[in-house]
């Protein structure tokens, strides 16, 4: 079914998921094909010109906020920085909400469990000093700071969570983003919550469940390596367990 026809000229054939978890279907639209357009541009065009009730999520449009991720031709992408000409084969696109998360409506996933797991993994900084203390000195070249730096640029887009087959198979699994965040904090020398954090990532949904398939590494738009962070957590928890601290 074609709900709209693009203006004259080259165009894209776009299938967009309409509906939620209980019911829905792919609806076909045509959108103009333009040079350097992004997937988010296409979705915005469809909403403004063909489907005003289409729901999707975005904010910054420059790859910083992590809110516009969705499945593009079956693969998780940050849509504001994904150019159509890099991913559309034969000018065809299939757009769906992020995998592994409940769907609120159309292209909007419910991110609650993603952020709940972030908290479950103790992914928040626990200060060890007060405002009366001097500012902590952290050597940029120290091994711990370099390890934290390697994972710190996560934008919470949930692309890794959608790419992870283990999340699909094991709904309790904390997921690559939450564990990556925990690893950056394990390497923060100012943090005082390490014991609780290591216990949190050693539970039944913790880091030891990771099969190192590296879907997260493949699709992370910021080219982070959550698999390496999770391997770091495995080592850290093992050492803590052998010291009797878990």
């Amino acid at each position: 079914m074609t709900d709209s026809t693009a203006e004259n000229g080259p165009h894209l054939e776009v299938r967009v998921w309409r509906g939620d978890d209980s019911a829905g279907k792919y609806v076909h639209y045509q959108a103009p094909l333009r040079e350097y357009q992004t997937i988010l541009d296409v979705v915005t065009w469809i909403q403004r010109n063909a489907a005003p009730t289409l729901s999707y999520r975005f904010a910054c449009r420059v790859g910083m906020c992590g809110s516009c991720a969705m499945m593009v031709n079956g693969k998780p992408r940050w849509t504001c920085r994904t150019q159509v000409n890099k991913v559309a084969k034969g000018n065809r696109l299939t757009l769906a909400p992020l995998r592994n998360l409940p769907v609120i409506k159309d292209l909007v996933s419910d991110m609650s469990e993603f952020f709940d797991k972030w908290q479950e993994a103790q992914g928040r900084f626990q200060p060890s000093a007060t405002r009366e203390d001097a500012v902590a000195s952290v050597a940029p070249q120290s091994a711990q700071r370099r390890a934290a730096d390697a994972g710190i640029e996560c934008i919470n887009c949930a692309v890794c969570y959608a790419a992870c087959d283990l999340v699909t198979a094991n709904s309790k699994y904390l997921g690559p983003a939450a564990l990556n965040r925990a690893w950056t904090l394990v390497n923060d020398v100012r943090d005082s919550g390490q014991s609780a954090r290591l216990r949190a990532v050693s539970g039944s949904g913790g880091c030891h469940n990771c099969h190192a398939q590296q879907g997260c590494v493949t699709y992370c738009p910021n080219e982070l390596n959550p698999t390496a962070s999770i391997a770091g957590l495995k080592r850290a928890t093992l050492k803590a367990a052998m010291r009797g601290e878990l």
Partner: peptide, 9 residues
């Protein structure tokens, strides 16, 4: 489902 102990063993 897999704990640190099982991972170790």
């Amino acid at each position: 489902m897999l704990t640190v102990r099982m991972h170790f063993f």
